[in-house]
Design a binder for these strands. Structure first.
Length: 569
RNA sequence: UGGGGUGUAGCCAAGUGGUAAGGCAACGGGUUUUGAUCCCGUCAUUCGCAGGUUCGAUUCCUGCCACCCCAGCCA
């Protein structure tokens, strides 16, 4: 995926390489990506997808896409479909290895029976409150359940009747018998099966008892022959339970769990619960809103899958808590898009410019390259006339030093066309510029010898007579602080929403080719950024554009530095 | 004050007993009809802190400090 010189293997790939060298699994590498279908995948999942599928690919191994569907109350087939689409879009293929924890419900039940018969699990009749109250705290041990020593035969009978539907939700629970005094709370007789009279999206009403994560996940790993079960750090203290389960049961294979730190990107949140909340309150349009950190959102935003893969690879895999700067993600996107995106001109915030010495009825077709570095991408004709739209930002009446764009009496090049001079500034009642009256230098048309005359600035434009109008949306970060979910003062993440995360440009004027942009097509609007024709809202001949990312902008940086200077003075 | 983790530049991240890779960012310079791209250069006498072992430590030992995770019949 990356052609960069390999910087040593990350610790997981190192473990795998060592296992391969020692012949631990006869050289087999089997991994799995195990999402719960209770929401859309986000950028953090992308890291896990790339790791699990990537590591398998690199070692001629296999990777399962396994849905961890053990909680019918929260899960939904729509999420299953979305997750499959996202993984596929990211560029990975699970071939025939699409599985579900629910595929193993019968095995899981049998494993539970095995545990009960071995005296390693018991049915507890305590209420949820009692169980919570006797679990102890971080510093105090828990107390044994009064039913802990219930005879195996009795537990077995109760467990069978739990399955048969004789009890209500919460009435009974199956617990592993480990150690209520363990300093690791996960080992204090964890619940492994609970009653839930709820229809499951795959098994329907067949079951009314459902396994808990630790039990289902561990055994699913073993049944699938997973060699390296990669998960995030918060499961680190579940590993003793994972290993305990493997120790008690007769399973065909012994997987190993390895934990790595989850991906955190500044100004983003990756909590499905919180993302769902943003949708509920109407802050965003849905899971695929272009501002969402979901795979679907990033895709709709115009981020290429290859850029996401590159990002995950550049971020690395460690056990360190980190906060990746957005700049890295944006660099990956720009690098990818710069390669292939055809260039075009679009004026986002237009102001009228009239060439007073240009014939009113004349139209010239200007030749423009579709890519400055890749001639093979061809050229196109762009109509030019007496009245043009230019970017409001590209004119300043009283500019600072080093402003290379248009100013009264100043010259600038119109990209792919002529050098012009600004003669007159027309303003409205409110003092805003309504029109710039300029003259063009006929000798300086692009391609003509006179074009070699140097002027400091080049600006983009669109012929007013030929302009296509289209909605353009500018997106910015959803939050105003790097860690909206980690506020020390206890404020809610919603308190940090960026009111300017979406800015609509209703008057944008595009050059004609852009009017035919196909949904999903990405262009570089020269000097402003990369834009994608929205996959949902674009109609044939009537595109709606989303800004993917801005171009790197040295001028904006200078301006900001100047402002900072003023502020400090 | 229990248990489990983690601490290498602004942000990531290699290195794990022999004297600090690489990327992003930043900053300088060159090319440029995108202030884009591209190219060149600069950017840790130092590896959370304090001791110790050693000819020599980011790497080994001891102590301390900081941060993250865990008390769902969620995953």
């Amino acid at each position: 995926m990356s052609d960069d010189a390999p910087a040593g293997l990350d610790f997981i790939r190192q473990i795998i390489a060592d296992d391969n060298a020692s012949g631990k699994h006869d050289g087999r590498v089997v991994t799995r990506f195990p999402p719960e279908p209770n929401g859309f995948l986000h950028i953090g999942h992308a890291k896990s997808v790339c790791l699990n599928f990537g590591v398998a690919e690199e070692n001629n191994g296999r990777c399962f896409l396994r849905f961890d569907d053990t909680n019918p109350l929260k899960e939904d087939q729509d999420f299953v479909d979305a997750i499959e689409a996202d993984v596929r879009w990211l560029g990975y293929d699970w071939e025939d290895r699409l599985t579900h924890a629910s595929d193993y419900y019968e095995d899981l039940y049998n494993c539970a029976v095995q545990l009960i018969e071995a005296g390693k699990a018991y049915v507890d009749s305590q209420t949820p409150d009692e169980i919570r109250a006797t679990r102890g705290t971080l510093t105090e041990p828990g107390q044994n359940s009064p039913h802990r020593e219930r005879p195996a035969a009795e537990s077995l009978d109760l467990f069978q009747r739990m399955r048969a539907g004789e009890f209500a939700d919460g009435e009974l629970v199956l617990r592993a018998k480990i150690n209520m005094a363990s300093p690791n709370i996960n080992l204090r007789d964890p619940i492994i099966f609970r009653i839930r009279h709820a229809a499951h999206q795959r098994t329907g009403d067949k079951w009314c008892i459902y396994p808990m994560y630790d039990f289902a996940h561990t055994i699913s790993d073993a049944l699938e022959g997973i060699t390296h079960s990669l998960c995030t750090l918060e499961f680190e203290d579940h590993r003793p339970l994972y290993d305990w389960i493997l120790d008690q049961l007769t399973l065909p294979h012994r997987p190993r769990q390895i934990e790595f730190s989850r991906l955190n990107v500044a100004y983003m949140i990756t909590s499905k619960r919180r993302l769902a909340e943003l949708i509920d309150i109407g802050q965003v349009g849905g899971w695929d809103d272009p501002r969402m950190p979901t795979i679907a959102g990033l895709r709709r935003r115009g981020y290429p899958a290859a850029a996401l893969r590159d990002f995950c690879s550049r971020v690395g895999v460690t056990k360190k808590d980190h906060l990746i700067e957005m700049a890295l993600l944006e660099t990956c996107v720009r690098e990818n898009l710069n390669e292939d995106a055809p260039r075009a001109m679009a004026v986002l915030d237009p102001v009228k410019l009239v060439l007073t010495n240009y014939p009113a009825d004349q139209v010239e077709m200007m030749t423009a390259a579709n890519h400055p570095q890749r001639g093979e991408l061809g050229e196109r004709e762009v109509p030019f006339g007496r009245e043009l739209w230019i970017e409001r930002d590209d004119f300043m009446e009283d500019p600072p030093k080093k402003f290379f764009r248009l100013k009264p009496g100043g010259e600038v090049r119109l990209r792919n066309a002529y050098i012009i001079r600004c003669d007159e500034v027309v303003k409205g009642e409110d003092g805003n510029v309504t029109e710039l009256r300029c003259t063009y230098d006929a000798d300086t048309r692009s391609g003509l010898p006179g074009a070699s005359r140097k002027v400091k600035g080049t600006i983009h434009w669109v012929s007013a007579a030929h302009a296509v109008s289209a909605p353009v949306r500018l997106y910015d970060r959803l939050f105003t602080v790097p860690r909206p979910d980690m506020d020390k003062s206890g404020r809610d993440f919603k308190d940090f929403l960026n009111p300017e995360s979406l800015q609509e440009m209703p008057a944008a004027k595009l050059e004609p080719v852009l009017g035919d942009a196909a949904a999903g097509a990405v262009y570089q609007f020269e000097r402003t950024g990369y834009f994608v024709a929205d996959s949902q809202d674009s109609q044939p001949g009537a595109p709606v554009f989303n800004r993917v990312v801005t171009l790197r902008d040295t001028w904006a940086k200078l301006e900001q530095a100047a402002l900072q200077e003023l502020g400090n003075a």
